[in-house]
Structures are given as C-alpha cells and as structure tokens.
C-alpha cells in the first residue's frame, strides 16, 4: 500500500524546509561562482546582485597566470598565481593511486580475513582494526621523520607512502560484505579446480562490485580532501596538490583587503571538477553511499 503524499499543512512545511535546505547547501557555491566573475573593485558596490553587473573573467585569468603581474595587481591581487593544471594533475594522480592501491590491497586483506583459514587470523584482524584508533597526527611525527630520512620530502613517494598499503576501515568494510556473500558458488568453482586467486577475481570481486564502488568513492573523496600531510611533505611545485596550492593562495592574500574575487575564482576552479562529477555520477554516488553505513 503506497499512500500518495497528501497536501496538508505539515507537508507544506516539510517542503519549505527542504527548499531551505537545498538553498543553504547549494547557494554558497553559486555565490562563489558569481563572485568569481566580479572585479575586486566592485566587490563592495556589487555585493548583492544575483548576476554580476559587470561580469569579467579577469579573476580566472590572473589566478591561472594568464595576465601580466601589473594587470593582476591592478585587479586587487598580489601577483600570486596558481599553476592550476599542474596541481590538478598532481591531485588527480594522487587520488587515483591512493584509491587503486587502497581498494586492491584492502580487497586482498578482506578476502583473507573472511575466507582463508590460519592460526591467529581473527586476532590479527582485531589488531589491524585497532589501528583506526591511532590519531593521524600521532603517526605524522614518526612518519615525517621516516620520510625525511629516506629523502622523500617533496616527492610523490613521500606524499603517497602512508596511504597506500593498509586502510583498516576499508578492510573492515569489505570483509563485512565478503562474509555476507554465499560460499556455494565459490565451493563449486573450487571443485571445478579454480584456484584462490581465480575465485577472488572471477567470483567474489564481481559479486562485490557495489561495495567496491562505494569504497572507491569514499576513499576518493577522502584523498581529494587530504591536506595536512601533503602540505607538510609536498611543498615543491612539482608535487604540490591542488588543495595545498589553493590554501597557500588563500594565505598569501594581502592583509588589508583579501583578494576575494581571486579566491573565489581559485575555489571555483576546484569545485567545478566535483560539480561535473556530481552531475554525471550523482545518482550512482548517492545510491552506492547507502551501502556504507548499513550491513
């Protein structure tokens, strides 16, 4: 029995609340985009119009380093630029490697903990899981010392190292699903002579494609968001992540009056890729995130 939502006072209030929610989640990003097209000189005079009165792309030009320093200073910046495509490339590379390694290694470990039999298995799993309790700032000091002594400061190796090999949450998450998958198909394949690795890649992983996607999305958002460690060990331009560059751009803003228009242009450049992603894969993302908490 599906009762149609009736139009009542409470329904109306609920709708209004929803519209309000949508407004507060989306509006700041609209406002950011809009301000990115306003010249700094007009920030005060044109602070409320929904569409800029005198739209300009000067902010994007100077943030991307396409304008001369004089133009940039005249527009209210401090000559600071973002080598956007370099940093975007670095961030994409970082995210892709992190997600690929985390999903692969976690799947291998989760399969081991859910299917293979050996002494001390469950104890080892508990030990791994307890790793989640170690606060990242705690490991950051020794990790920094390690990466420094290896000469990996300002290298991708150094930025990536702590993320790749083990992700306790991901192992926990996938193990839960593997345990829920019926073993009958696996046993049949085994009788047919399939090896462990074949069973894992041909049977278990395809059956777990939903949770694997969910995990990849969560870890990708997490990697894209990483800031503390990359800004400590990856300050050189060749390995600087977009996040680190945008934060540095914000911090270098002149003290008298922040370069709002430039900042909003820089922020827009970082939001736009996610916006495109959300428009294309929004449904997939939303429906697969449902997996993560439940089960």
């Amino acid at each position: 029995m599906k009762n149609k939502p009736r139009i009542t006072v409470s329904r109306l209030i609920e709708r209004i609340v929803l519209v309000f929610l949508l407004l507060i989640t989306v509006f700041p990003f609209f406002w950011m985009l809009r301000t990115a097209f306003v010249a700094n000189a007009n920030i005060f005079s044109d602070s409320m119009s929904l569409i800029p009165k005198e739209p300009t792309i000067v902010n994007f030009k100077r943030v991307l380093g396409l304008s001369t320093t004089e133009e940039s200073l005249a527009a209210g910046g401090n000559g600071q630029q973002l080598d956007f495509f370099l940093y975007l490339g670095n961030s994409l590379l970082f995210t892709a490697v992190v997600v690929a390694c985390q999903v692969t290694f976690s799947a291998l470990a989760a399969y081991t903990f859910s299917r293979l039999r050996f002494r001390g298995r469950d104890a080892l799993f508990t030990v791994f899981l307890s790793g989640m309790m170690i606060p990242p700032i705690f490991s950051m000091l020794p990790n920094f010392a390690l990466v420094r002594s290896l000469g990996w400061i300002d290298s991708f190796a150094g930025i990536l190292a702590p993320y790749l090999l083990i992700t306790p949450f991901a192992i926990f998450f996938l193990r839960q699903f593997f345990l829920g998958i019926s073993r009958e198909v696996e046993e049949a394949a085994r009788i047919d002579g399939a090896g462990r690795f074949q069973i894992l890649t041909r049977i278990v992983l395809p059956m777990a494609s939903g949770p694997l996607t969910t995990l990849a999305i969560i870890q990708a958002v997490g990697a894209w968001n990483e800031y503390m460690w990359p800004q400590l060990v990856g300050r050189d331009d060749s390995v600087k992540l977009l996040n680190v560059a945008v934060a540095a751009f914000a911090k270098s803003s002149p003290n008298s009056q922040p370069d709002w228009a430039g900042l909003m242009a820089a922020a827009s450049l970082q939001v736009i890729p996610m916006l495109i992603l959300l428009i294309i894969f929004g449904k997939k993302i939303v429906s697969s995130l449902g997996f993560s908490g439940v089960k």
């Binding site: 929610l21 949508l22 989640t25 989306v26 700041p28 990003f29 406002w31 950011m32 958002v221 894209w224 968001n225 800031y227 996040n243 945008v246 934060a247 914000a250 900042l263 909003m264 820089a266 922020a267 970082q270 939001v271 996610m274 916006l275 992603l277 959300l278 929004g282 993302i285 939303v286 995130l289």
Partner: peptide, 15 residues
C-alpha cells in the same frame, strides 16, 4: 544536498 561533502575542507573554509 551531498554537494558540500564532495568539496575539500580547504575550499569550504575559503568559501
């Protein structure tokens, strides 16, 4: 409604 979650903290701070 999920949009802000996809945006890094750094960008959220600036906006």
């Amino acid at each position: 409604i999920l949009l802000p979650w996809l945006i890094p903290n750094v960008t959220v701070a600036i906006v």
